[in-house]
């Protein structure tokens, strides 16, 4: 446990040691503002809620999370520090978990900095803050899911660009897996049950369920299972590929 905390602190500090963190946070805040006010018609809707804010989160994350995740292992591999890290007395799981949690924590900080949005809507009206809290939680879980995908992909390669593009593609597939775009591809040759299973993997539908204020165990479990599965895969990939 101590090792996880030590590694976690090192990782989190690394984000803020370079301009990366600040660039990410600024872009995240600016984009989420633009989406909410211009595309989401926050004012015109005349409703005291943050739907127009949260509805764009999957799309925002789709690009920004792979950008955060791409460096997590690819960088370690490229600079050779992976050899240092894994010959220190730490287990693979401690390393994978600590690095993931640090990245997730970083995204949580960026998300928390959107609090003026919440202040604004409370100033203008009286929204259901329970729903807003649930939506924030859902958003964080969704970010965690995307992040786990990206981190796993990052373990495959030395190149951050490749990690970004593949991470983005996979995240996109998981976002769209409830839509005809993806489902039609499977429908022709897979049994209906499997197609339904693919549809149920959609990030979008689980997030939308939570952001409506229904904190269903099924949806939470979906994101947690997704995180665990991708991190498990990540550990296997690192173990397999660390020699090259």
């Amino acid at each position: 446990m101590n090792n996880v905390i030590t590694l976690f602190k090192r990782e989190l500090r690394a984000y803020f040691a370079t301009p990366l963190a600040y660039v990410f946070i600024v872009i995240f805040l600016v984009l989420s503002g633009i989406f909410t006010f211009y595309l989401g018609n926050f004012y015109e809707r005349n409703q005291a809620d943050l739907d127009s804010f949260f509805i764009f989160h999957p799309w925002l994350y789709l690009f920004l999370i792979p950008a955060i995740a791409m460096r997590v292992w690819a960088d370690e591999r490229k600079s050779g520090t992976i050899e240092l890290l894994l010959t220190l007395p730490v287990t693979m799981w401690q390393a994978v978990l600590a690095k993931y949690l640090a990245a997730w924590c970083f995204v949580a900080i960026a998300l928390a900095l959107t609090f003026p949005m919440w202040l604004t809507v409370n100033y203008l009206g009286s929204p259901d803050n329970g729903i807003i809290l649930a939506a924030y939680l859902g958003s964080l879980l969704m970010a965690g899911g995307y992040l786990a995908i990206g981190v796993c992909v990052s373990a495959f390669t030395k190149s951050q660009v490749i990690a970004f593009i593949i991470g983005l593609t996979l995240c996109f597939l998981f976002t769209m897996s409830g839509f005809p775009l993806v489902l039609d591809f499977f429908r022709g040759w897979l049994p209906g049950g499997v197609v339904d299973a693919v549809a149920s993997l959609s990030v979008l539908s689980h997030f939308q369920a939570i952001s409506r204020g229904v904190l269903n165990l099924r949806d939470v479990a979906y994101f947690l299972a997704m995180i665990v599965a991708w991190l498990y895969a990540c550990a296997i990939v690192i173990d397999m590929k660390k020699a090259d």
């Binding site: 090192r10 500090r13 040691a17 050899e83 007395p89």
Partner: peptide
């Protein structure tokens, strides 16, 4: 103690931070 080929280190850390980190991990 192991010095890997090329002596990799975390570039974003100062030497002091890096050695502190190693000392932490080494308990």
């Amino acid at each position: 103690g192991y010095l890997p080929e090329g002596a990799p280190g975390y570039g974003d850390m100062s030497v002091r931070q890096f050695l502190d980190f190693i000392a932490d991990i080494r308990a």
